Amino acid sequence: MYFLTHLAAAALVGRYARLAPTWLVAGAALPDLVDKPLGTLGLVDLYHTVGHTALLAPLAVAVALTGRAGLAVAVGWASHLFLDAFHIVINGRPTDALFLVWPMAVPPDPLALPPGAFFRYYLWSPSFFLEVAFWLALAGLAVRERRAGRSLLNRA
């Protein structure tokens, strides 16, 4: 799943969960802001490692307990992990979802593509079409909210 889709999905969660969209988006950005540079610099072999491991859940719970902003960051982070695992599974690579327990387990045959090569792989995959549908639905919702004189991010 693409970075901007993670951010948009997190902001949309804020509309219904009554959590601050800014903090949700920050939490949703964290996994890629940590792991993509590590992978690009060759410090790790995969692009789903430290920031994408569900083994950080206790830390996320601790952050969530700091207040509503912390809860929003934790929910945004969790939404990123869920969406990445979901898109990997529907694209037919369920063992790649082992990134969720990195470093305890590593996918046996990880895709391990840099972002540019990943784009070519991702085009026309089942997850690609779901992502396009998400953006079309989001655009439709934005138009509807604008016509009603409301902001997309503020639930009235």
Rank of each mutant, 00 (worst) to 15 (best):
M1L: 05
M1I: 09
M1P: 14
Y2Q: 04
F3H: 13
L4T: 15
L4W: 07
T5W: 07
T5K: 10
H6Q: 06
H6M: 01
L7M: 12
L7T: 03
L7G: 07
A8N: 15
A10W: 00
L12N: 15
L12E: 07
V13M: 09
V13E: 01
G14A: 03
Y16D: 00
A17M: 04
A17W: 08
R18P: 00
L19M: 00
P21H: 04
W23I: 00
W23T: 00
W23P: 01
V25M: 07
V25G: 03
A26C: 12
L30W: 04
D32Q: 10
L33I: 12
L33E: 15
L33P: 04
V34W: 14
V34A: 03
V34N: 06
V34D: 10
D35K: 14
D35W: 04
D35R: 08
K36S: 02
P37C: 11
L38C: 01
T40H: 10
G42Q: 12
L43V: 05
L43P: 00
V44K: 08
V44C: 08
D45A: 15
V50A: 14
V50E: 09
H52W: 10
A54C: 07
A54E: 01
L56A: 10
L56E: 10
P58F: 06
P58V: 02
L59V: 15
A60D: 06
A60V: 12
V63M: 03
A64H: 04
T66Q: 11
G67D: 05
R68I: 06
A69R: 13
A69N: 06
L71R: 07
L71P: 00
A72R: 01
V73G: 06
A74C: 15
A74H: 11
G76K: 00
G76D: 03
A78T: 10
A78G: 15
A78W: 00
L81F: 02
L83G: 10
L83D: 02
D84Y: 06
D84A: 06
H87D: 05
H87I: 07
I88V: 12
I88N: 06
I88F: 07
V89A: 10
N91I: 06
G92Y: 02
G92Q: 15
P94I: 11
P94S: 13
T95W: 15
D96E: 11
L98V: 07
F99D: 00
L100H: 03
L100A: 14
L100N: 10
V101Q: 03
M104D: 02
M104Q: 08
A105I: 11
V106K: 03
D109L: 09
D109C: 02
D109E: 09
D109I: 02
D109G: 05
P110S: 11
L111P: 13
L111A: 14
A112T: 12
L113D: 06
A117M: 10
R120I: 09
Y121C: 01
L123S: 03
L123T: 04
W124A: 13
S125P: 02
P126E: 13
S127K: 07
L130Q: 12
V132F: 09
A133D: 12
F134N: 13
A137Q: 05
L138F: 04
A139V: 10
A139L: 15
L141P: 05
L141E: 15
L141T: 14
V143D: 06
E145F: 07
R146S: 11
R146E: 07
R147D: 05
A148N: 11
A148E: 12
A148Y: 07
G149I: 01
G149E: 14
R150H: 15
L152W: 09
L152E: 03
L152F: 14
R155E: 03
